[in-house]
Design a protein around this nucleic acid. Structure first.
Length: 334
RNA sequence: GCUGAGGUGGCGGAGUGGACAAUCGCAGCAGUCUGUAAAACUGCCGGCCGACAGGCCUACCCAAGUUCGAAUCUUGGCCUCAGCA
């Protein structure tokens, strides 16, 4: 739906994106690119943005690496103190932005990411976005026009009690077109209906206002692996995270925070069951592994539709060099 | 060994003479997607044919019956669990 910008792509700030399903090997590739091209990483991950989720969300913080204070960013009356960690001398941004009792949003993410990208670029470095949160990446690649329409929290509380039919009626009353545009799946989705109503109402009150968006010249790398190979890696990861103290992390989260929007983490539920004695350690790990595999598949469903991604098969030899070569071509030929 | 309960699709678990290829949940498969996205939602989910409508086949532990008709009733067998010994 985004109009072609008047600015040609090659005058826009340049950004590399590295995406792929969980356990595909994104970070390694991104770090090696960062070293080659003098880059810094920006995490695009809806869980790693939270503090206290290091193990479950799989932050790649080397042991002993401390948080380095960077800058503060203002977003809607809130101040966010950003830090970076060094992975193998390469700084990673947007880990540990907020506590897990808060609710992140793509609007916040997009705002932070834009600031960070600008900061990195202003120092003559190349921003490299790494992550598996497709929606977050999308917010950077092509910022949705409705992204800054704020949620109506009070109305949400009320509408959450309504049936799907009632929500459809409400939306139809404000904007029949919007309802008509939704597909059969979304029309049954309370969350999407509520947001659609929010947008329709807001637009009715604020005609003609559009959020300012900045665009980037993106080189979008996707890493994929056959699902069997990926499953093996996921299984290993779950074991490693368990041994690294995942159970303790869950206990800590439970103690520190009551409401945990940021603790919708894979592994959380199986570990709780284990803590409560409902399942054995082996069963908990199995459940967790299954959830991760299912998640990886869902991620791929999203990524497959993104036509701008250049895919690389991680099981093949020499993909790092291939990616580097392609990036170099894109980077130097403009 | 006796008594009681029960054996249903990958798992859990409904159904208790026809409307049953069998409710539902989980798992699985395929998708949707623009301020919750590690979320939420949708479709499929015995086999074969078909775009759909629909058709055919094989199915509710095994076997033999009763019946126009059985996952459901009867008899026998095998197995599991609980209580007694």
């Amino acid at each position: 739906m985004q109009k072609a910008s008047a600015t040609p792509d090659h005058h826009l700030p340049r950004v590399i994106i590295v995406c792929g399903p969980t356990a595909s090997g994104k970070t390694n590739l991104a770090v090696s690119l960062a070293k080659r091209f003098n880059g810094e990483l920006v995490s695009a991950d809806s869980r790693q943005i939270y503090k206290c989720t290091d193990i479950l969300s799989g932050k790649d913080i080397p042991s002993g690496a401390g948080a380095i204070p960077r800058k503060s960013v203002q977003y809607r009356d809130e101040e966010y103190a950003l830090v970076t960690y060094d992975i193998d001398t390469v700084p990673v941004w947007l880990y540990d932005v907020m506590t897990p009792d808060r609710q992140c949003s793509i609007s916040l993410y997009q705002s932070l990411a834009q600031t960070v990208i600008g900061d990195i670029a202003s120092r003559g470095k190349l921003p490299i976005i790494v992550g598996g949160a497709g929606l977050y990446i999308n917010a950077i690649v092509r910022t949705p026009e409705t992204i800054n329409i704020p949620p109506n929290l009070i109305a949400r509380d009320y509408r959450n009690t309504l049936t799907v039919e009632a929500l459809q009626d409400d939306l139809a009353a404000i904007s029949p077109d919007r309802l008509a545009m939704m597909n059969a799946s979304d029309r049954q989705n309370p969350r999407r209906l509520i947001r659609a109503i929010e947008i329709a109402q807001w637009q009715a009150e604020h005609k003609g206002e559009a959020p300012e968006t900045r665009r980037f010249d993106c080189f979008w790398v996707g890493i994929r692996r056959p699902i069997d190979a990926l499953s093996v890696r996921i299984r290993t990861r779950v074991k490693e995270r368990w041994d690294a103290g995942a159970v303790g992390e869950v206990k800590r989260l439970k103690v520190l925070y009551h409401a945990l929007p940021g603790a919708h983490l894979l592994g959380f539920v199986p570990i709780m069951k284990y803590i409560d004695g409902e399942v054995s350690e082996a069963e908990a790990k199995d459940l967790w592994t299954k959830d991760e595999i299912a998640y990886a598949k869902r991620q791929m469903v999203w990524f497959r539709r993104q036509k701008d991604i250049r895919w690389y098969d991680a099981e093949e030899k020499g993909i790092e060099r291939q990616v580097e070569k392609d990036v170099r071509q894109w980077y130097t030929n403009r």
